[in-house]
Amino acid sequence: MLPNFTYERPGSVDEALEHGSSEGAVLHAGGTDLLGCLRDGVFSAKKVVSLSGLEELRGISPTRDGGLRVGALTTLTGVASDPTIAERYTVLAQAAASAASPQLRNQGTIGGNICQRPRCWYFRGDWHCLRKGGDTCYAIAGENHFHCIFGGSGCYIVHPSDTAPALQALGASVRIASRSGSRTVPIESFFLLPADDIQRENLLEPGELVTEVLLPPVASGTRSVYRKVRDRGAWDFALAGLAAVVTMPGDSVETASLVLSGVAPKPWRAAEAEGALTGARLDAETIARVVAASVAGALPLEHNGYKVALVRGLMEETLRALA
């Protein structure tokens, strides 16, 4: 049962920002996450502001610098099946294709995907947890099979998005519009940890909206891959996933971007692993070093220790395939 709210479908971004700034307003892109949250009482809304009338937020087009602009309202199906993305930004196409279910991908947007709320079952259920303004994180002493092993403090959610780590591995940025103007933020700094803000997963202020995602040009010879592990074959978030973007002009790795999903409250850059990989030859010894580095600093909770092994396994499998 959805609670009562009013509904607006503005025709321009300015109008949307206007509506979005009113008290209790929430933005609706595809609605696939929003409606679930409202139904479960995760948060409430006085007004639902639909973005679906904003044609300018749709579509994929090249940018002047040779990169790509992906409108925030582009559906995940649209992202996954775009030939340019599939060819040059494979990691993103694969990530989009691995999310949720076919119907949800037809409806869910890339903007909504990176802004969706976490899936912690205490947060989504009727526990008044820390992230909802309560005073307890139930995951600490409770059923934390799917919670984070990196970046937790106070709250132990994992960021749910599959596309976010891919975007981060690609060095993407997001364009944010607000009534005071617009700005572009590297996606790396878009997401927040609980230590930054325990009730928000990104730096959007009320009334702000993501208009597009900007992908930088890719160097030739770049290889990228998204590998996701989940408990069932479809319709399931990542237990852990790895977005890897690597350039290897000769024998050794020139640049490496390794971003994990499902293990931290935001897409998690495996910085030590990247360090161990950059400049090295992709041989068994390097792989062993990178694998070990990928879980440096991991702090598993009682039931999610397997994620440490899983990250190692993902890293090893992916690097072996790239070698």
Binding site: H28, G31, L35, G36, Q107
Partner: peptide, 24 residues
């Protein structure tokens, strides 16, 4: 809540969940 597909319909020829679609 978008977790079963029983409510699937086509909107402009594309399958989606009618339970996760506001009528508006």
């Amino acid at each position: 809540r978008g977790e079963c597909g029983a409510c699937s319909v086509l909107m402009d020829g594309v399958p989606r969940y009618s339970c996760m679609t506001l009528a508006a």
